[in-house]
Lab assay of single mutants.
Amino acid sequence: MPSETPQAEVGPTGCPHRSGPHSAKGSLEKGSPEDKEAKEPLWIRPDAPSRCTWQLGRPASESPHHHTAPAKSPKILPDILKKIGDTPMVRINKIGKKFGLKCELLAKCEFFNAGGSVKDRISLRMIEDAERDGTLKPGDTIIEPTSGNTGIGLALAAAVRGYRCIIVMPEKMSSEKVDVLRALGAEIVRTPTNARFDSPESHVGVAWRLKNEIPNSHILDQYRNASNPLAHYDTTADEILQQCDGKLDMLVASVGTGGTITGIARKLKEKCPGCRIIGVDPEGSILAEPEELNQTEQTTYEVEGIGYDFIPTVLDRTVVDKWFKSNDEEAFTFARMLIAQEGLLCGGSAGSTVAVAVKAAQELQEGQRCVVILPDSVRNYMTKFLSDRWMLQKGFLKEEDLTEKKPWWWHLRVQELGLSAPLTVLPTITCGHTIEILREKGFDQAPVVDEAGVILGMVTLGNMLSSLLAGKVQPSDQVGKVIYKQFKQIRLTDTLGRLSHILEMDHFALVV
């Protein structure tokens, strides 16, 4: 994948999101292997301009796509893939009243899908469409860049269908997702969380590099694949309309690839034109409109599966009536509230959605109805927002919020430890010299600072030695090549209790 991002070429006709291997024109390309080798690009942008032909009021008969309808489940399912879809609609009884809503608040519980998330729908649909058009064949390999849930859905379907599955996901995604993927037989590649989507090191860039190296491999490409919004247009939206008897006044959905909100909203605009569509985008993402909503100094966020630093091709923002931004604290607070007060075992993005819903639905009156999409299960986040310690460490809970008995030293300040200034190293000294210094002084790690004293990161003896043994660096290389740029900081005025929580999850903390 090139470091400079080429513009994806656009073909003359058809839909841009065809499933299957992508040609340089962004659509299915038939021909000899030699032709494909000559024409197939190194990668295709996940934010390529959409060429979708959908228009409100256009006859369904003019759609270029294969459409399906929700099917009634048999008493005995032939395999677990038949437990994807037909998820329950559940009334939220307490939270709406707590925040003064007059309307009825309903939750579409997508964590009841077989793999635990709304992404099971698009995973199965992308595979079925690729099999139907002859792209996927027995023994082929599926590769997908994902925040985890699409990966789980694909790995689940691949396990049943017999495909090899490789999932490329950023490091910030939970260990629970990784464990589930491994249990399903998927191979996992992790990428830096802070890598831009168009960087060769991003999950998108690495996935395309693997595709170019592995024979008979395919990126189904949830960011561009029409099967993504079509899955929701054909099934999720129809289920909502049936469950609500066609009567709903507002739908609120958090947005990642945009397939969920695009597919549902398009069908609702056709069948229930008075329904307002509300999009939820986390602070630090750029999906919301108008652009002024996205202006923030924050560039990272903890909530998973929603928000991006690019506009995915499948996201149709014209069908969203209003956007709201959400933050991590309210997302996790509301997710825990949904679990504790409503018994809905949902993930953090569901918290984002409901946090926005109780604001947006203030305009609705008694007798009206708001539906929220709860995308995934708490299963993926047992060591994250479900953990009091994690919430404390991230600053989303305060010590006084917890009532468990603490040891005698818990409320003492870090400054009472009488710490001395640490050994520091410059980023320009060599790895070999740094190892000598650390061994001589008896230290395992040291902060790396520039000549102005600005902290650049941390270097550890173990990481340097393993990097040297693996051949990633040489003793003569500058130590700046092996620094940890993500590390926890703590102030002298913070409590030892807070430091204790940090050290339970990290090997060190830097006192500043």
Rank of each mutant, 00 (worst) to 15 (best):
K102S: 02
S175V: 11
R18Q: 15
M250V: 05
D249G: 13
N93Y: 05
P64K: 08
A158D: 01
A226L: 07
V10R: 11
K269L: 03
R18G: 12
G153H: 01
I240R: 00
G14C: 06
K247E: 08
A265E: 05
C15G: 09
K97E: 14
T260H: 15
Y233H: 09
G134I: 04
E131V: 11
V255M: 10
A183V: 03
E201I: 06
E213R: 11
N216G: 05
S63F: 08
E131H: 02
L28F: 06
L77E: 05
N225W: 00
T260C: 08
V252D: 11
S50D: 07
R224C: 07
S63C: 13
G263H: 00
G258P: 01
E37L: 13
G116L: 12
E110R: 03
I214K: 02
G258H: 00
G258Q: 01
G26L: 09
I142T: 04
L268K: 04
A186S: 03
Q222I: 00
G100T: 05
S73A: 13
G148A: 07
R125G: 08
G258L: 00
K177A: 00
D79F: 06
L56A: 10
I80T: 10
N228T: 01
T191Y: 02
A157R: 02
C244K: 02
S3W: 04
R164Q: 03
M173G: 03
H67F: 14
F197C: 02
I122F: 02
E4K: 14
P273M: 14
G256E: 00
I76M: 12
A60E: 10
R58T: 10
D120G: 06
G139D: 09
P88H: 04
P41E: 11
P192L: 03
S123F: 06
A155M: 07
I219E: 03
A231E: 04
A71R: 12
P229A: 05
T191A: 02
V189D: 04
T257P: 05
Q7M: 03
I92D: 00
K271R: 14
V90L: 05
G185R: 00
I167N: 08
E201R: 15
K75G: 14
T68Y: 06
L184E: 02
I167C: 09
D221C: 02
L42G: 15
G31K: 11
R196W: 08
G11H: 09
A253F: 05
E171P: 07
H203G: 05
